[in-house]
Design a protein around this nucleic acid. Structure first.
Length: 749
DNA sequence: GACCTGCTGCGGCGTG
């Protein structure tokens, strides 16, 4: 156990402790815990009951793992499973599995319960041992669970026949994604193979609406899921929002300056980097940025500042395109108490990987979501009595005649304030998941066929949709199957069973099949024979061009398009590469709060003078445009509509408008219709969203690229439009936002 | 102006 802290108030009064078996009690005692934590106290009897699904919601390091495993281990000792595994632990990250194995091994060893891990980095012989002698606890990823079904379908009943518990770590990280739906399907298929209901225990960060998480954990039975939430989250939050004004690039004045060979940082970026440097040096910190590009840019600026001061560098980038070994180096340095390290990172360090304790968290750029900001904040101030310290940096353009409207409105600063205010109010985006997830349904169909060697169409539908988590009716399912047959992926055998066709065999037979999500093709980046990371295929650098990557600067030696390898050597000049990839979506709640911030007069105390000025300027522009009285304005290049709604509604509005012949796009908080007057835009909105019955599928078909997920190329256009509508559109929200506009809404029409 | 995650089993060969 890393930090066996204790709480004295419940000492000696624990009834839950008395419920645990002798061996577990001895282990707790030997580790000098004088009492169970609140969530453990509550979870123990619920888990010991054995038939109750449960969500344990608490910040990282609150003892969630033990809340689940003290009673699970106790139960497995007192009542050993008749055959196979007793408990499964499913985690979204391999690193987390490794952390948890280290953490749980002493407990399991002490009471004689076998514990094993299974993921892509585990050697084959260990996996074989688990297959041949399944027993105790297994820690596994969703992808490896999928591989078990595909490759050992007939062995699953024996493996899982005695299974009593499934623990899902970081439950919130799964909700709403293709991977989340895959997990739900696997949970259901586990119960089908075990021929019994298995208690599901979700470990989660505190979320706004736990009922959504409960419905996710047990589709159709969320109401019966017990929820154990930590009451102990009363840490003080020290927050500062720092505003900056963009100034043109200026030549960096140091021995490392190589002005002619690089794209220069702008003045505001330099100021932000300098402030980060002064506030964080000498301790362990996390600095989050909104893109990998920014991560590289700021890591480079901070390293050069260290060079200039002739001190050892302690700033390292951490993002998804860096090689595993470079990332692990950074994680190791963060854990080392004697080596001050600041990681400049994307959401890679948002989940619960062990990075020790950090003394501050910074965020460069307005956060996209409150939940993610909360999660990032949870990574610091973890020792009792510590305050969480957050510094948030935003920069805005200098206002010149003809500036863009969103610059006038100081959108980024106001978004940052809105997110912070919601955070202080303890509001978080509720997770949503009403999507069809047809790509993942295709994966699960193929996997189910492979598991059984073939099955009747009706049986597959019942397993995945009828009794399983996919919300897909039989006619739609049949349409999907016909499409798969048309693509030569499946075929019908003589006995009527659906089996894999040769193309389907190839898809399922490749190891890339197990993941539900798609991965873009990339070039490997190699320096001196060592792989340092990867770059998107769209980034095709010329020889002798310069690159900033992994916190260092490189010159490109050559590009091997055949083998997809870029080789580089160290250099003094560099340029930040662009990465592809989509970011998060902004939720309705954030945009609604932004409107309130514009309309309000209060000035939050956590603003520095520049941030205060930005807020004043934004509010002034808001009033001057008349946005306090109306939602439409006319300004170059055309009419603009401010629905104060999230990205889904914005997308629905622009696509719906183009369906009725009015070309429109969204720019930040505004829907813009170039060349149109307010009257024309209002007319088009009314026509589409008030007078007519908007057809979500027709709106979806206006979107250019419908093939966004892994198996979409195997699905016909009409079904893809429905998939897109359920995952990317909000027609009800769009109608609501249009009808609310005076002069456009139904009441005024 | 934009995140992240994951990945098999087997047959054949050589060595201690």
């Amino acid at each position: 156990m890393s930090s066996p802290t204790s709480r004295s108030e419940s000492e000696g009064a624990s009834t839950s402790y008395a419920l645990l078996c002798d061996g577990v009690r001895r282990w707790v005692h030997r580790n000098e815990w004088t009492a169970l934590r609140d969530i453990q106290e509550e979870a123990v009897p619920l888990v010991l009951g054995g038939d109750r699904d449960l969500i344990v919601a608490a910040p990282t390091a609150a003892g969630k793992t033990e809340a689940a495993f003290l009673p699970i281990c106790s139960s497995l000792v007192e009542d050993p499973p008749t055959q196979g595994l007793g408990a499964l632990y499913i985690s979204p990250l391999k690193a987390l599995i490794n952390d948890q194995q280290r953490r749980l091994e002493p407990l399991c060893e002490a009471i004689g319960i076998p514990i094993d891990s299974w993921h892509g980095d585990i050697p084959d012989r260990r996996k074989r041992r688990v297959r041949e002698h399944p027993d105790g606890v297994l820690l596994i990823t969703p992808e490896s669970t999928e591989a078990l079904f595909v490759n050992h379908g007939s062995a699953m009943s024996g493996l899982l026949g005695g299974l009593r518990f499934v623990v899902i770590d970081e439950l919130h990280a799964f909700i709403g994604s293709e991977r989340g739906r895959q997990l739900q399907s696997l949970l259901h298929r586990i119960e089908l193979a075990a021929r019994r209901r298995v208690a599901r225990i979700g470990l989660s960060a505190t979320l706004g609406d736990m009922q959504v998480a409960a419905d996710f954990l047990r589709p159709g039975g969320g109401g019966d899921v017990a929820i154990v939430e930590s009451s102990r989250d009363g840490r003080t939050l020290k927050v500062q929002l720092r505003g900056y004004l963009a100034t043109p690039p200026k030549v960096d004045d140091g021995p490392m300056a190589t002005a002619s060979l690089e794209d220069l940082a702008t003045g505001d970026q330099l100021e932000i980097a300098n402030h980060v440097y002064e506030q964080t040096r000498g301790r362990d910190n996390l600095v989050f940025a909104n893109s990998r590009r920014q991560v590289e840019q700021f890591a480079d600026l901070l390293r050069r500042r260290c060079d200039r001061e002739r001190v050892p560098n302690e700033f390292w980038p951490h993002h998804g395109n860096l090689s595993k070994s470079l990332r692990e180096d950074v994680e190791r340095m963060l854990r080392e108490p004697t080596k001050p390290t600041t990681a400049v990172c994307t959401s890679t360090l948002e989940l619960g990987i062990d990075v020790g304790s950090v003394s501050s968290v910074s965020q460069i750029g307005a956060p996209f979501s409150v939940a993610a900001m909360r999660q990032r904040l949870g990574r610091c101030g973890r020792r009792p009595g510590d305050a969480s310290a957050l510094r948030l940096y935003v920069s805005e353009q200098s206002l010149e005649p003809g500036a863009r409207l969103q610059d006038d409105l100081r959108e980024e600063a106001v978004q940052a304030i809105a997110v912070l205010e919601l955070l202080i109010d303890r509001w978080y985006e509720p997770p949503v998941d009403g999507a069809l997830h047809l790509s993942t349904l295709v994966q699960q169909i193929l996997s189910t066929i492979a598991q059984h060697g073939g099955a009747k169409a009706g049986e597959i539908w019942r397993a995945l949709c009828g009794s399983g988590p996919f919300e897909c009716d039989q006619p739609t399912f049949s349409e999907l199957l016909r499409g798969l047959a048309g693509h030569d992926v499946i075929q019908q055998a003589g006995d009527g069973d659906v089996i894999l066709a040769p193309k389907g065999e190839r898809i399922v037979g490749h190891y890339s099949f197990y993941a539900a999500f798609a991965t873009p093709e990339e070039y490997r980046l190699v320096a001196d024979g060592e792989e340092i990371g990867s770059l998107p295929i769209s980034f095709s650098p010329a020889e002798e061009s310069h690159l900033i990557f992994g916190g260092r600067r490189w010159t490109v030696l050559g590009v091997d398009h055949e083998r997809r390898v870029i080789s580089v050597r160290p250099s003094k000049a560099g340029r930040v590469p662009g990465f592809q990839g989509g970011g998060g979506e902004i939720h309705d709640g954030v945009r609604a709060r932004m409107q309130e911030v514009y309309e309000g007069e209060e000035v939050p105390v956590y603003l520095n003078p520049t941030a205060r000025r930005l807020l004043e300027e934004g509010r002034r522009a808001f009033r001057e445009l008349g946005l306090d009285r109306r939602q439409m304005v006319e300004r170059s290049p055309g009419a603009m509509f401010f629905p104060w709604a999230g990205d889904r509604v914005m997308r629905t509005l622009t696509l719906g408008l183009s369906l009725s012949g009015c070309k429109a796009h969204s720019e930040g908080v505004a829907v813009v219709a170039p060349g149109k007057s307010i009257v024309e835009l209002a007319e088009a909105l009314r026509e589409t969203f008030v007078d007519g019955e908007p057809d979500a599928y027709a709106i979806a078909s206006q979107a250019g690229a419908l093939q966004t997920e892994k198996h979409h190329r195997l699905i016909d256009e009409a079904l893809l439009a429905r998939d897109f509508a359920t995952s990317h559109l909000d027609v009800v929200g769009a109608i609501r936002s249009v009808t609310a506009v005076p002069g456009v809404g139904a009441d005024d029409a």
